[in-house]
Design a binder for these strands. Structure first.
Lengths: 337, 337
DNA sequence: ACTTGGCACTCGGGAACACAGAGTGCTAGA
DNA sequence: TCTAGCACTCTGTGTTCCCGAGTGCCAAGT
C-alpha cells in the first residue's frame, strides 16, 4: 500500500513542515528534496497518503500538513534519533557537574533541557518509593517538639515537625533515633510501613506513645509525598509557538502537578529507560501538544521521568536526542553521588 | 491646577478603563459616573489631564487611556485598598492552615495569591540571613562523608554532603555536632561566619582539618543561598492579558531569579510591611508590567517579600488588598510555627 | 502500469475602497 | 465657567476584487 517513495514523500513533508511551518505543496517538495519525480507524481502519492490519513490539507488547494498519525509513522519508522554534537555534550556535562545537591541537580537539569530543545522541559523528582532510607534523624527543637528528617539514598531530604504527646529528654530522643536507624537504615521506602509496624511493641511501654506519634508522622510523610513533585522550565518558549489548544490551557497544565504527571507517563516496566513519544491526540488532557519523555535514575532502577513538551509540529529527532542524552547524564550524576 | 473634579474624572477614567479595557470617551464617562456635568466639560478636563501627562489617547479621536503617571496618581491619592470579603479571608485561612512545612507554606501561598488576584503571583523564600540557627546536624553517611543539615527558625532546611579529608568515627562526629550547636544555636545566620572563625583554634589539633572542611561547606551554603529562591504561579493568567512588552519577555523574566528579585524590590527598612506598587516604567527590566508587593515575616523582622505581577492595567485596589491580606496571614503562620 | 505535462478549478489572503460610529477640538452662547 | 452644537478625524469593519499557490483529473508518453 505504501511503497518506499510514498514514505519518502511523507518524510519530506514532515521535515519541510517542521522547518517552515507552512503547508507544503507538491512542487516545492519535488524540487527541494531530490525525489527525481515530477510534482504530478508527488501529488498522486500525496493523495494516497491523505487517503490513508497520514496527511491532511488545512483547506482545499493548500499544501499538506502531517496528521498525528503521520508524525507517528515518521517517528516510528522514518527517522533516527539525532545525537547531540560534541560541544553540546560537553556543555551538558560541565553544567550538570556543578550541582551541589539534589534540588540543584533537578533545577539545572530542567533548565538545561529547556535551553537545549527550546521547548518546555519537565522533570519529575526522583520517586521516594523506589529509593532507600539512608538516615533518619530526630532533632529536638523544644521539650515537646522534634524535627523528623528523612534522608534517602538519592539525596532527597524530607522534614517534618512532630508535636510530642509528652515531654521527652534528649537522651531518650537519641535512643529512639538509634532505634529507628537500626530498623530502617538501607531499607526501601516502600517497605517502611511494614518494618515499623511492630516497633512500638518491642519498646518499653513508656516510650510507646511518643514513638507511635513519630511513626505516624513518618508514614504520613511517605504517603503524602507519594505523588511526586514536578518542576518545569522554559515556559517562555511557548510564546512563539501556537497551540491548537490555547496557550492558556498549556500553561494551566504545567502548573497542575497531576496533569503533568499524566503527561510524562509512567515508566513502562519492560524498557525503563526508553524514549516515550506521545503525539497530539495520544496525550491525555492536552491533545494539541507532543511529549517526549524518558526515564532516568541511578543504575537499573528508574527513579523518575523527565522530558519536554512542545507543539505537535516539533523536530522529533533532535528533541529525542536531547532528552535521551540529558536522561543519561542525569542518571550518571545520581549514580555517582 | 488639578481641581477636585479633574481628579474625579481621572479616577473615573482609570476605573472604566480597567474594567472595560477600552479607551474611555467623554460621553460614556459623563453618564456612567454621575459627574453632573456635560460631556463637553469632561472633554475640557480631559484635555487638561492630557496636558499634564496623566492620560493619553492611543490615536486621534479615540478615548483616553491612563498613563503610568496617571495610574501612579490614582494609586497614591485617588483610591483605597479594598479589603477582602469575609468569605475570601476564611478561604485564605483554611487553605494556609493546612501547610505541613515551609515548602508547603510557600507553595500554597503562591497559588493562593495567583488565584485570588488572577495574576501571576511571586513569593520569595524567607531570607536565610535574617533568620537564626535552630539546629545544626551532622549525619554520618559513610566513613569519609557526612551530611550537614542546617535548620533555621523559619523551618527552612539546607543540606549538603561534605567529603571529609580523613576517616572520622561516629563518636567524633557526634562531638563535633555538639560543639557546633553549642556555638551556633539560636544565633543569627549573618553572625555565623564571625562565630565560627576561631572555632578550629579551640579544638585539639587532630580535629582541625575535619572541622575546617565542614565549616567551609557551611559558610558556602550561607553564601550561595544568600541570593534567594523565588517561586511563581499563575502564569496561565498571562494568557488573556496583553503586554506592551511581549508575553515572551514576561515569561522569561519569571524564570530569571535575578530579574524577579529586582522586580519584587527590597524591603524598605523604614516601613517594612508596607505595600509597594511599581507601575509600568517604574519597573526595572520589565517596563510593561506592574508589580504589587509587600514584605512578610514572623513578628517584626521582615524575612522576605511576596507580590503579584500583572499588566499595568490592573485593578490596583483589589490587588493591593489581596497582597496585603496574604502577607499578613503568611506572617501569622510563620510566627506560629 | 506507472509517470508526466497540461489544464481548469478552488480557495485563502491581501489590497483597495467605502462607510458608519465614536470621539475630539473649537467656538459661540447661557 | 459650563454647555450645546458642529465640523473633523480617525479606527474598525464589511465588501469586493484579484492574484497565486495548489490541487485533481485526464490524456499522452515511456
Amino acid at each position: 500500500m505504501l511503497d518506499d517513495r510514498k514514505l519518502a514523500v511523507l518524510r519530506a513533508i514532515v521535515e519541510d513542515y517542521v522547518s517552515t511551518n507552512e503547508p507544503v505543496g507538491s512542487k516545492a517538495l519535488a524540487e527541494r528534496h531530490n525525489l527525481k519525480v515530477s510534482p504530478a507524481t508527488v501529488r498522486n502519492d500525496m493523495a494516497a497518503l491523505e487517503e490513508e490519513g497520514y496527511i491532511t490539507q488545512p483547506h482545499t488547494s493548500a499544501g499538506r500538513v502531517p496528521t498525528d498519525k503521520g508524525y507517528r509513522l515518521f517517528v516510528d519508522r522514518l527517522s533516527q534519533v539525532k545525537p547531540l554534537s560534541a560541544a553540546e555534550r560537553r556543555a551538558i556535562e560541565t553544567f550538570l557537574a556543578g550541582a551541589v545537591d539534589l534540588d540543584d541537580v533537578v533545577t539545572r537539569t530542567v533548565r538545561l533541557l529547556a535551553q537545549l530543545t527550546r521547548q518546555v522541559a519537565v522533570v519529575q523528582y526522583p520517586t521516594l518509593t523506589r529509593s532507600t532510607v539512608r538516615h533518619v534523624e530526630l532533632v529536638p527543637l523544644s521539650e515537646r517538639r522534634v524535627m523528623l528528617v528523612l534522608i534517602t539514598n538519592t539525596g532527597r531530604v524530607e522534614q517534618r515537625v512532630v508535636e510530642l504527646p509528652e515531654q521527652v529528654e534528649d537522651t531518650r530522643v537519641a535512643h529512639m533515633r538509634a532505634m529507628l536507624n537500626a530498623c530502617l537504615d538501607g531499607c526501601g521506602l516502600s517497605s517502611v510501613p511494614e518494618l515499623v509496624s511492630d516497633l512500638p511493641e518491642r519498646l518499653p511501654p513508656e516510650d510507646r506513645p511518643v514513638v507511635a506519634t513519630i511513626l505516624s508522622v513518618l508514614l504520613e510523610t511517605l504517603v503524602e509525598r507519594h505523588d511526586e513533585k514536578i518542576v518545569f522550565a522554559g515556559a517562555a518558549n511557548l510564546a512563539g509557538a501556537d497551540f491548537s489548544t490555547g496557550l492558556r490551557d498549556v500553561l494551566e497544565a504545567l502548573e497542575e502537578q497531576v496533569v503533568l504527571m499524566r503527561l510524562l507517563g509512567e515508566t513502562s516496566s519492560d524498557t525503563p529507560a526508553a524514549l516515550t513519544v506521545r503525539i497530539g491526540s495520544e496525550n491525555p488532557y492536552l491533545r494539541g501538544t507532543s511529549v517526549v519523555a524518558a526515564g532516568y535514575g541511578s543504575g537499573d532502577n528508574q527513579l523518575a521521568r523527565l522530558g519536554v513538551l512542545g507543539p505537535t509540529r516539533m523536530d522529533y529527532p533532535v528533541t529525542m536526542g536531547a532528552v535521551r542524552a540529558v536522561a543519561r547524564y542525569v542518571s550518571q550524576i545520581l549514580a555517582a553521588s
